[in-house]
Design a protein around this nucleic acid. Sequence first.
DNA 1: GTCGTATGTCTTGTCACGCAAGATACCTTG
DNA 2: CAAGGTATCTTGCGTGACAAGACATACGAC
Lengths: 124, 124
Amino acid sequence: MESPTARTEIRKGSIARELRRGTLELIVLHLLEPGEAYGYEIVTKLTRETQGALEVTDGTLYPVLYRLERAGFVGVRWDTPERGVPRKYYQLTDAGRQELHALTTEWSAFADAMARLLGTGHPR
Amino acid sequence: MESPTARTEIRKGSIARELRRGTLELIVLHLLEPGEAYGYEIVTKLTRETQGALEVTDGTLYPVLYRLERAGFVGVRWDTPERGVPRKYYQLTDAGRQELHALTTEWSAFADAMARLLGTGHPR
DNA sequence: GTCGTATGTCTTGTCACGCAAGATACCTTG
DNA sequence: CAAGGTATCTTGCGTGACAAGACATACGAC
């Protein structure tokens, strides 16, 4: 099993990098919907839930979380156990849930438009 | 009818701007597939074919076309009539057709992964 | 005739953001 | 104690969409 620490080099020539633009916020908010999670957990969760189709490195994720926090879309809670590495837990706020909904809608509209445009000839 | 000259301000807070990243090349190559077209024509064609769902300004398009040309994905032909504004026509090259296919595949994989991830609860 | 508007091309500068790479620290297992 | 997994954060780079502006030709209205 590949650990997140073994940083997977993301292909340069690929458009995958650009596709993450704009979808990453949506993805993170979506992953937080079922309940709070900490950064490292989100990275592994995303890789697992998409069978590696969508991946992200921690160097990418942490800035996103910071942005979401500043925007008021997520709340933060530190868990500092006596023994063990401290974890920073993120939870959706009401505004975050609203944003999640808005982004989901926007994404659907875009994906639909793309599908219609690229649509394999089948007219109408 | 809205003319392309009346530049539609693209919403700043929207993710639409980011979503175009990576898809724009694919979109342009796709629009060139049926046959050659000139820049201005592509702008209007995209707006029309997607009922405005996907739009692009000429300031965005021309750099894309230049990139595609440099990459060898499109060929160029000037049409300079005695009377009238000169037009620069673009056509897909073989490499461009190949790229179009590759990008389409990549896009589909990404869109599918997103759909699976966001999938409305229906588990498994 | 000239003013506005549509057609058509191109360039400059700005800004956002994904990412590689590196730093730091703790814990476990051999 | 040395590796490697867990966990966080920061710096710097490159890419690319876009607004704004410039420029030129054509055509209509006034």
